[in-house]
């Protein structure tokens, strides 16, 4: 038979969980904001590069390299609490790797859904950081993230050697959108994990209250609905962007499908 004390303990635990859960939501929204800022800056700089194009070149997918290969992959690690962490991985083996997908047009397609699988992500071009081949936690040092192990692999080269600086800025913007995307995905899986906990805990609490004969007015949390609504909301927000982006996305998906094989980088470590 449950006691009042046990119930209080459980309720405290539940409260803490919910607080954590809300913190995660905050983090989620922050990541979203960061991603959209990076992407919109990137697209605007891309437009600026086109505006300043010295040779009447239209910088975009017209100049993609068909031999492109992924520069970056996503590693999935599951930690002891069953929370999946998504980690950016450097795929460049220094000298001979060619090029990868261009991030600018690629990145938005990553946002299509909240649960971006690794197989979708890996093509995202984020430039390798120095020489390390081991998976690295989000690169917070943005400068380090912009140097290439193999400069010849830099997709900017597709657009010629003497390209407008705005194009480089655009690349950096798109690049900077990748770590928050990883964060977003990790946060999402964390949220999911919390949801499960909260649900089971609140069920326990409810049972205990019934046993103790306490009437409760507060409904059990309905996070599942909230979360999926939130995602839907953000998707439609992204989707309702502009036609140009939409266009790129479509084309991008096409180019995805054309990719011969995707180096699915999923070294899970317990």
């Amino acid at each position: 038979m449950a006691t009042q004390h046990e119930l209080d303990e459980l309720q405290d635990k539940l409260n803490n969980l919910i607080i954590n859960y809300l913190d995660l939501f905050d983090k989620y929204q922050a990541s979203r904001a960061e991603i959209s800022r990076a992407l919109s800056d990137g697209f605007l700089n891309l437009a600026q590069a086109n505006f300043n194009a010295p040779n009447r070149v239209r910088y975009g997918q017209d100049m993609y390299d068909n031999r492109m290969q992924a520069l970056r992959g996503v590693g999935i690690a599951v930690n002891e609490t069953d929370v999946t962490a998504y980690i950016l991985k450097d795929l460049t083996s220094p000298p001979e790797v060619v090029d990868s997908e261009k991030a600018d047009l690629e990145a938005p397609s990553n946002l299509d859904g909240p649960d971006i699988g690794p197989e979708k992500e890996e093509v995202s071009e984020i430039v390798g950081q120095g020489d390390h081949d081991t998976p690295k936690e989000r690169p917070d040092d943005s400068d380090a993230a912009l140097t290439l192990a193999n400069p010849k692999a830099d997709p900017l080269r597709w657009f010629g050697i003497l390209r407008p600086m705005a194009l480089g800025t655009a690349q950096k913007n798109f690049l900077h959108s990748l770590p928050p995307i990883m964060e977003l995905v990790s946060t999402l899986s964390d949220i999911e994990y919390h949801e499960k906990d909260i649900r089971s805990l609140s069920q326990k609490v409810r049972k205990m209250r019934e046993e103790l004969g306490i009437n409760f007015i507060d409904e059990p949390v309905e996070e599942t609905a909230t979360i999926s609504e939130l995602d839907k909301l953000s998707i439609s927000k992204d989707g309702a962007g502009d036609e140009a982006i939409e266009d790129h996305r479509l084309e991008d998906k096409k180019s995805h499908n054309q990719q011969p094989e995707k180096p699915a980088e999923t070294p899970s470590k317990e």
Binding site: S40, L44, A47, Q48, N50, F51, G241, D242, E243, I245
Partner: peptide, 20 residues
């Protein structure tokens, strides 16, 4: 180029730099 730039700014809803 100007028209494309303006169109781009409109499409991306970035009016701050539309006067460039």
């Amino acid at each position: 180029r100007n028209i494309t730039w303006i169109a781009e700014c409109i499409a991306q809803n970035q009016k701050d730099r539309i006067g460039n």
